[in-house]
Amino acid sequence: MLILGIESATSQVGCAIGGHEGVLASTHSSRGKRHAENLTPQIDFVRQQARVELDEISVVAVDIGPGLYTGLRVGVAAAISIAFGLGIPMIGVSSLDLIAYPARHCQKLIVAAIDARRDEIFHASYRQVPGGIQRVSDPTVSSPQDLSAEIQAQGNETLMVGDGAIRYADQFENLRGVEPAEPGSAYPSASSLVQLAHAKALREEFVNPSELKPLYLRKPDALEINKQRRRM
């Protein structure tokens, strides 16, 4: 089984190919919002590095967000098109799961926080379980202040990960028992995506391309309607 993983929910875009043997090749780029330009050539490059043909791919995994909407949709549109084009199933994984996953050996509560712009962050909490991590709160969007208050109220030993935790580090650095996020934990990785998707593929947790839904966490019209009305 070969899995192509596509990840574009944050300011970086990447992809990886892997399967039973682990990750065979992966790539990321983050310079200047060029998700749509870079993704297709990246997939072709990773395919060559992994020495496979795209029609050997049996599953397409994709980061379904939450994240920056325009970039996120580039990856999702590419992933559903590839799955449709090859007639193969898909697996969707949340960006928050992807940034929490590399911290799976940590005993503390893991809080994954992704920058949502507009002074907000997308976040969810995770706990270590045998063989990986388990999400213990639903993904949500809130102000960094609200998340900070929540962490303080719970009083757990906590590890922060993700670019949202880094950007608003001042909100979390003085909380007792909270370990701040490291720069290396900032972004989801396509390799993590392939690894997590592999476990899901073994459990046959597939969806069809037409069933895959991005995780936006905000209503689409929230901030655009006022802008529209003003234009009259």
């Binding site: 749509a36 795209l54 909407y69 549109a77 590419a78 098109s81 590839i82 084009g85 090859l86």
Partner: peptide, 19 residues
Amino acid sequence: LIGSLLVGVSAAKSLALVW
């Protein structure tokens, strides 16, 4: 609209690549 255009361009490039 940039967000709308990107969906079609990404889909078409992906199909061209896999086909």
